[in-house]
Computed example of a mutant assay.
Amino acid sequence: MVENPAGFWVRFGAKVIDALIFIVLGLILGAIFSDGTSEWVSNIISFLYALLLPIFWYGYTVGKKALSVRIVKLDGSQVTFWTMIKRNVIAWIVYGLPSILGFIGFIVIFGVSGLDVFMSEDLMSDEVLGELFKGFAWLMIGLILSGVLYVISAFMIGLREDKRAIHDLIAGTYVTKNKPNL
């Protein structure tokens, strides 16, 4: 049973705080590693932060703790590793699937005929431009559909009584203002 759910703006604020932490981390890592290593190191740390910190810190990230909200399972209990895998990995695959399919469509179009066309002498021909248009159309449609899923989730948080987004539905979680029972 969902008790005292957190709305859109407080959740958004927590995300902004967490993002600022990783901007600073990225700048620090960028100063340390000048060979491009900082980006993938920062991405790995960010992924582990979102996945593991709520498990060990009663559903909090730094942003959520700062704004006094936390992630819990539907019964109000502590999130588990599997819960966070569903919330952060499976759900993000769902959000990203249209983009992934759009990218695959882009690759397939170029794999089938695009690369051959690019080897031709006339790069401004109707054939080359047509292949480019089809490939980018697939890619843009995928990106737009992924964006639509994010917007739908934002509206779900804002409009649903239980304030649950797509990733909450997948993982069986919600974000609450309730403090943990220690």
Rank of each mutant, 00 (worst) to 15 (best):
E3L: 13
N4R: 08
G7I: 12
F8A: 05
W9A: 15
V10E: 03
R11P: 13
G13K: 05
G13S: 15
V16A: 14
A19D: 04
V24M: 11
S34M: 08
G36H: 05
G36P: 02
S38W: 13
S38M: 10
S38K: 09
S38P: 05
I45D: 02
I45L: 06
L48A: 14
L52D: 06
L53C: 05
P54C: 08
I55Y: 01
Y58F: 09
T61C: 09
T61S: 15
K64M: 07
K65A: 13
L67C: 14
R70D: 04
I71S: 00
I71W: 00
V72E: 00
G76W: 04
Q78A: 14
T80E: 01
M84G: 06
I85G: 06
K86G: 13
I93K: 05
G96Q: 03
P98L: 04
P98A: 04
I100L: 14
L101D: 08
G102R: 04
G105C: 10
F106G: 13
V108S: 11
F110C: 11
V112P: 03
D116L: 04
M119T: 07
M124D: 15
M124F: 15
D126R: 05
E127P: 10
L132Y: 12
K134P: 10
F136C: 08
W138L: 03
M140V: 07
M140D: 00
I141N: 03
G142M: 00
L145G: 00
S146R: 00
S146K: 00
V148Q: 01
V148S: 11
L149Y: 05
Y150M: 10
V151L: 13
A154C: 14
A154F: 07
F155S: 15
M156F: 14
L159V: 10
R160A: 10
R160D: 09
R160N: 13
D162F: 14
D162G: 13
H167Y: 04
T173R: 03
T173A: 10
T173Y: 01
V175T: 13
K177G: 12
K177P: 13
N178Q: 06
P180C: 03
